[in-house]
Design a protein around this nucleic acid. Structure first.
Lengths: 193, 193
DNA sequence: CGTCTATTTGAATGTACTCAAAAGCGGTGG
DNA sequence: CCACCGCTTTTGAGTACATTCAAATAGACG
């Protein structure tokens, strides 16, 4: 059960059978239908989420009602409303299923106990956060330094599987452009070939 | 010695005297003159950096030679080229002193030993990285959803001390706009009052 | 099949950019 | 202490990329 998750973890830290069992015991499964919310802005989000199957999208809705995609999460990725999780405040973002999805949740309380009991998990998440840190910085710099067409090309290179699975509209909202613009960019790229 | 740093740490974790001593023993002081590089793109950056005094700027230079400020670090902040640090590859960014500065460095090797020996430090950095994660997401969303003038206002609210200390040019390169644009934005804001 | 949403296309608009030049400011050396 | 030099900031004019608004087309789903 949950081999992919354990394998993922094993690439960072080595666990005893006992620790594995403990870890697995705090996971709570959850299923979502396409278009269903996992977290809504205003909710208390008190868990980390691991995606077993499917695809989630985290997005922020601005004052004008425009959706800005913060992140996607597909199989073997983690997601959460980190803001809500660490501050205890209501979430600022929505997380919804783009496809029928199967998740594993770790409640904040269980998470806190886990990392205290088994510091290797503290390590695991520290390392994962460092990687996210780098990815975030990269995204920030790319958004500042590159025109939209190049950002789109980077996206398709970096996440080819996402490119396939996602509607244009959502990719546009991740890249920070309008669907119309992305449509035009794609046309130009096809023509250019 | 290094009371501010210890106080900062104490707000996250409690250390024994022995642990404090161990921690302090691995810190390496470094002084920089204004305009001096701390890290240059292409260097191996093998340390975390804590700013005792002064101000650093981390920036990326794109293909067209334009500088994009990734982060600032003033007193009691940490900085590093996280990419170089975790991959072992040469840095992609430059870190330079904007003012005469005093730093404390933790070598990667020492850091790795530290967090293994004292998991509380693993915890400390995990928590700090979570906060950085939230700050990064916020910056990404703001860059996507707000016009430049509002982003500037947010910056002045969020970092009033930085606003005072930094030349316009550097703030512009952090906000992802040209110095000319920021100059015009400031004029508009003064007029608007 | 019909409805609803996503995508494409067009035309007009706007925000921020580039290029160029002037004014302001700070540091350095005579 | 002042004059000069270099860098920063301001201002102007023209431009470009992406946007908005509107409408047509295509696709998905019941």
């Amino acid at each position: 059960m949950h081999e992919t998750l354990l394998k993922n973890i094993a690439s960072f830290i080595e666990l005893t059978d006992e620790e594995k069992e403990y870890f697995l015991s705090i996971l709570r499964p959850k299923k979502l239908r396409k278009r269903q919310y996992h977290v809504q802005a205003g909710d208390m989000c008190r868990y980390e989420t691991y995606v077993v199957k499917g695809c989630l999208r985290q997005y922020y809705v601005d004052d004008e009602g425009i959706e800005h995609t913060v992140s996607f999460a597909i199989e073997d990725w983690w997601t959460s409303d980190m803001y809500g999780l660490i501050t205890g405040n209501p979430s600022l973002t929505n997380i919804e299923a783009i496809e029928d999805s199967e998740l594993l949740l770790i409640e904040k309380n269980d998470f806190d106990k886990l990392v205290l009991a088994v510091p290797k998990f503290e390590r695991l998440f520290r390392i994962k956060l460092q990687r996210a840190f780098v990815a975030h910085q990269r995204r920030i710099v790319e958004n500042m330094s590159m025109p939209a067409d190049q950002r789109y090309l980077n996206f398709t290179e970096q996440y080819p599987s996402l490119e396939q699975r996602l509607p244009l509209k959502l990719i546009a909202s991740y890249l920070g452009i309008t669907p119309e613009s992305l449509s035009r960019i794609r046309r130009q790229l096809v023509k250019g070939k």
